[in-house]
């Protein structure tokens, strides 16, 4: 090994003259050009179509059966989804369209649930409740929550002004110009996903980023999730990931099934303790 290095050094020393010659006659000169730094702003002017944010909307896909899946075993509780959601939908501070809960089960089977700041800051620096000792933890996991987009929604039934409704393609949305913020839907929702938006003074909720889906993009939280714990797709499309999971042997659960709301938000690997 040592000999090799010496030989190499000798080779370089001997050939230094040749190297300089080559630079002068131009054969290495080209590669030196690469070292001149170029400002990237020069390229930024020439953008292809893809880099523009496309804002035209597709027609409603009435054949689709959209569904959302959350793989609980993949969630790392980083809070990227909540941050993306707040930016995308301009959700005021203190309200959450989506949030991540931390479940800790101790040796006595007591379940501790918390979601400080809706999990938006991530759980890296958020200590456990003082009553829980780390040695006593049997299981711990994160559960992202968002609108269940029920097929039989209780919120739309109670609205006195028909401001919240299911669109023909299956999304429950709130008409912000029609809503009188009476708060009935907030009480009716069994999953607690609705809130009064302080900016618009109307009821507000997660729409699975309807505006993004109509533009052919994934919801913001699905796009932001680093571990692909959140999945979105069309169950009627056999090639979609959600349809493959739906037809596989994986056990899918929905929250509060006995209520009969028929949620379209499915959980993979969900523990029985989660409500």
């Amino acid at each position: 090994m040592k000999n090799n290095i010496e030989i190499n050094q000798n080779f370089i020393d001997k050939d230094r003259r040749g190297f300089i010659k080559k630079i002068i006659d131009g054969s290495i000169g080209g590669s030196l050009m690469l070292m001149i730094p170029m400002k990237s702003s020069l390229f930024a002017e020439v953008l292809s179509e893809d880099s523009n944010i496309k804002n035209y909307i597709n027609p409603m896909n009435l054949k689709a059966n959209y569904c959302f899946m959350v793989d609980v075993s993949a969630c790392i509780g980083c809070g990227s989804c909540c941050v993306a959601d707040r930016r995308e939908n301009d959700v005021p501070e203190g309200s959450y369209r989506t949030w991540v809960e931390r479940y800790v089960i101790d040796l006595l089977n007591t379940v501790h649930v918390d979601a400080p700041f809706g999990g938006e800051l991530g759980y890296s620096n958020i200590p456990l409740n003082e009553t829980i000792k780390e040695a006593d933890i049997k299981e711990a996991f994160f559960v992202p929550k968002l609108c269940n987009m029920c097929e039989q929604p209780s919120c739309t039934q109670v609205c006195p002004v028909a401001a919240t409704f299911t669109t023909p393609d299956g999304f429950v949305v709130v008409d912000t110009e029609h809503c009188v913020a009476c708060g009935y839907c907030i009480q009716a929702c069994p999953y607690g996903v609705r809130f009064i938006n302080e900016k618009t003074h109307t009821a507000d909720k997660c729409t699975w980023c309807y505006h993004r889906v109509r533009k052919g993009k994934l919801p913001a939280c699905v796009n932001a999730c680093p571990t692909h714990a959140r999945k979105f797709g069309d169950l009627n499309d056999p090639n979609s990931e959600v349809a493959k999971i739906f037809n596989s042997k994986n056990r899918l659960t929905v929250l509060k099934e006995p209520l009969g709301n028929e949620p379209q938000l499915y959980y993979l690997n969900l523990h029985d303790e989660v409500i």
């Binding site: 944010i53 496309k54 804002n55 909307i57 409603m60 993306a84 930016r87 995308e88 301009d90 669109t167 023909p168 949305v173 729409t207 309807y210 505006h211 993004r212 109509r214 533009k215 993009k217 913001a220 796009n223 932001a224």
Partner: peptide, 11 residues
């Protein structure tokens, strides 16, 4: 429905 779909993309 279209008003909701027309909201601008942020991401």
């Amino acid at each position: 429905v279209d008003q909701e779909a027309n909201k601008p993309l942020i991401h």
